[in-house]
Write a protein that binds this DNA or RNA. Structure first.
Length: 108
DNA sequence: GGGTTGACGTGCC
DNA sequence: GGGCACGCCAACC
């Protein structure tokens, strides 16, 4: 019973340290499928069905934009969560994105 | 098996 | 610098 892509993505996402963020592309690249960044986002969409709690708010696109905030129910929720973890959000974008960026390929 | 989808990324205008 | 079009690949119907 091999883990599906979703589970593999979730496994990586839930390892993102608090106060750190990651991009879909970085996760996809870590899974040796750099072109499949869209699948990571899709896995996030399916994270609601996951048994474990997936910190999907720590996953943004490569620009550090909270592209998936509309999937959190409240548009303020994702930003609020990240801000609560010490990140700086401005116009739905992480200001200190590069500073807080967490690359699984390097740090994991 | 085939077409559609999607919380992306890159390139081009 | 912002916006649009194409590509990419796995899951879903």
């Amino acid at each position: 019973m091999e883990k599906s892509f979703f589970e593999a993505v979730w496994d990586v996402v839930e390892k993102i340290p608090t106060g750190r963020v990651c991009s879909y592309g970085a996760i996809a690249h870590y899974l040796s499928t750099p072109k499949a960044a869209r699948m990571v986002g899709w896995a996030m969409n399916a994270s609601h069905s996951a048994k474990r709690a997936i910190p999907a708010h720590r996953v943004v696109n490569r620009l550090g934009i909270l592209s998936g905030k509309q999937h959190f129910g409240q548009l303020d929720l994702m930003e609020k969560l990240l801000t609560n973890e010490g990140l700086i959000i401005e116009n739905d974008k992480i200001v200190n994105f590069e500073e807080k960026f967490w690359n699984p390929s390097i740090e994991l």
